[in-house]
Amino acid sequence: MIKDSNPMLPAQFCIQWVRKETHDTFTIELKSTNGTHEFPFSAGQFNMLYVFGVGEAPISISGDPSKPEVLKHTTRSVGTVTKAISKLKKGDVLGVRGPFGSYWPLEDSLGKDIVIVTGGIGLAPLRPALYQLISQREKYGRIVLLYGARMPEDLLYKKELEQWRGRFDVEVKVTVDSAKGNWRGNVGVVTTLIPRAQFDPLQTIAMICGPEVMIRFTIKELQNCGIKTENIFISMERNMKCGIGLCGHCQFGFCFVCKDGPVFRLDRIKAIFGKREI
């Protein structure tokens, strides 16, 4: 008999609220249906979310790791499963398996400058890291968040971005690829923000998440600044069916993105990262 320890069997979580972030992204807050069950996770990990009868998709966790009583996910409604999640209402139940995968190296970065570079929805898996960094602000050097979106309307978490930017101890720079005439902020790809940011390249840990092409150019720019490959961490996306290294879909060279990743230290995958169709 297959017992309850079956890692393929989802736990049930109830939707507390669904909030539209932009025209195609939304955030959901979940609580365990058995009430008191907490969901501890590390910043950067993901869950497999299951919609009854529709299917399952890997979605990064975007809530606060110090608040394990609620579980938050921000995602774009682009596939069958994410579209179905976007239609769920308060009180509906989702299946959750996780948390899976590796996480951002926050414990190993104490005392260092932190540079976070994200593009689009890539901010979602880094928000838990930002919550944790800011709540333990005194333990780190400079904190820099560089965030790029396609258009001003595509910016995620606007209120939080404003709050973080309002602090004297966090440097937040935002840019968009293109904008209408009423935008007074930066225009240009996110890499253009890097030379203007303040950090000590020899004492910096960089964390990057976004489309792979954006990650590639960001790495180049960070390396130009003098950040070493072993201090650069990236979060990757691949097709996943199981989340636990058994289905084979997320293979990336010798790695399984679901269990060796999604967060990788760049020097460990240097030989394959950026190669076409690996």
């Binding site: 069916k241 058994l246 084979g248």
Partner: peptide
């Protein structure tokens, strides 16, 4: 060993199943 999964329901939508298949 690679597999995919298929999620299916019956016509009433009350029953769902998850199947694993060789991929």
């Amino acid at each position: 060993f690679c597999t995919t999964v298929e999620d299916v329901t019956d016509l009433t939508g009350e029953h769902a199943e998850r199947w694993r298949k060789w991929d």
